[in-house]
């Protein structure tokens, strides 16, 4: 992303977060909002594709089993994944300290959850207005309310991401200056999300003989692929 200073890059990333958030609940659910997809895409746009891919993989694994069932709004990995890319992409944190950026960006999950809940509450008014329109025989106006609700998703998430950046980007800059290079220190830790996700899913699936056989088959083919 040539030609933008770090403030411009943050605003651009916030717009990106707002647009991508629409996919999660309001329209489509094509999984573009999963970190595995969104983080590499933002990384590519900001000129740090590798950072985007690694960030996406780590956060995807960390939140593999968070399910959006019913009215429950779980912590989602989208904001931390995008914020980590922003921290490195704007030069606040050096690429070698990416694991630190991943940790710093975690509190942005709270802002994401706030935006989601706020959007759902604001939709109560949207629904009431749409109902009034239908009662008056103006179904077309009710449909416009639907479009407005989808726009609100993007708006709330844009605002929440911008707010997260306003707090966490300076925090990342300060920590990157005062802390020594900890990339080696965090290296084993970078494997932990992967192993936690794998062990959680293995545990839930390996209660039958059939599951163990499938797991063993996967291990065998993995060994073959790894050795080749």
């Amino acid at each position: 992303m040539i030609g933008l200073n770090w403030v411009g890059a943050i605003v651009f990333a916030s717009l990106f977060a707002g647009v991508v958030s629409v996919d999660r609940a309001a329209f489509g659910q094509f999984q573009i909002s999963r970190p595995l997809v969104a983080a590499p895409l933002l990384g590519l746009l900001m000129g740090i594709p590798t950072v985007g891919v690694v960030t996406g993989l780590v956060f995807e694994l960390l939140f593999l089993d968070s399910l959006p069932v019913g009215s429950f709004v779980p912590f989602e990995p989208l904001f931390p994944a995008l914020l980590s890319v922003v921290l490195v992409g704007t030069g606040q944190v050096p690429p070698s300290a990416l694991p630190m950026a991943l940790v710093i960006s975690l509190p942005s999950m709270v802002a994401d959850q706030w935006a989601e809940v706020r959007w759902r509450r604001s939709n109560e008014h949207v629904f009431n207005r749409a109902q009034a329109c239908v009662r008056l025989g103006r179904v077309d106006l009710a449909q416009i309310q639907m479009g407005f609700a989808i726009f609100l998703t993007a708006f709330f998430h844009f605002t929440a991401f911008l707010f997260s950046c306003a707090i966490l980007v300076p925090a990342g800059r300060v920590l990157a200056v005062i802390l020594p290079d900890l990339s080696g220190f965090f290296l084993v830790a970078a494997l932990v999300p992967l192993l936690t996700g794998l062990s959680a899913f293995s545990r839930s699936r390996l209660h039958k003989k059939e599951g163990w056989i499938q797991f063993a088959a996967g291990l065998f083919f993995g060994l073959l692929a790894g050795l080749v």
Partner: peptide
């Protein structure tokens, strides 16, 4: 489970 086993083996190697 197959993918879990596969990823674990490749990661370990």
């Amino acid at each position: 489970p197959i993918a879990c086993g596969f990823i674990l083996a490749v990661t370990a190697l």
